[in-house]
Amino acid sequence: MADEQQPEGAGTPPPAKGEADKPPAPAAKPVPPKPAAPPPKPPAVMAAVPWESDLARAAKERFDDGIKAASTYAGQNFIVTAPDAAVPLLEYLKLEADFDYLVDITAVDWPKRPDRFDLVYIVYSFSRNERVRIKTAIPDGFKPATAVDVHLTANWLEREVFDMFGIEFAGHPDLRRILMPEDWQGYPLRKDYSILQQDERWVRENLGIESGQ
């Protein structure tokens, strides 16, 4: 079915299934909107503003080129780093700025970008009551360093990222799938992983027929 392919449609708003965003306009002839369509594409970036703070400045001083940006969006601060600077920054924040609680590690897949994945670390400091996100863009196949040596909780969180996105963490003590079965094929949260492909394969292998999905 055509509309089932739609999860692959990354970056751009998926137009299919648009029962919601298609007003009941009965095929009128509003031709004028056409030329206006291309321009709105570029502003499809997050309207983040620079984050001015002692912490951001100190981190920038310490890591120099490792820190690409320190920004704020919707009142939430995040630091964009070079891929090798993420874990050193985590360690720096933990030891120097008391960010002693690694809340989460996750990833976001942007298949159209050369640096395909955004790796996201969320840290929190109990003493400062402050939360910071660390984001780093990595290409497919890049093996970021593990954060287990800095925060033990990274163990399972990185296993989940590996399980779902296929990002391998260099130096991880026990990098196995965690939620999916060990023999699972593919990485489910990648955008090119259709929700039907596993099902079709299973039907073909186990029932010997083509899936009717």
Partner: peptide, 21 residues
């Protein structure tokens, strides 16, 4: 952790579950 690409669907919706951690 929710990411929007401006469309009607979440681009990414990560849940940080307390039980898992």
């Amino acid at each position: 952790y929710v990411v929007s690409d401006g469309s009607t669907q979440p681009y990414r919706c990560r849940v940080r579950p307390p039980s898992f951690v």
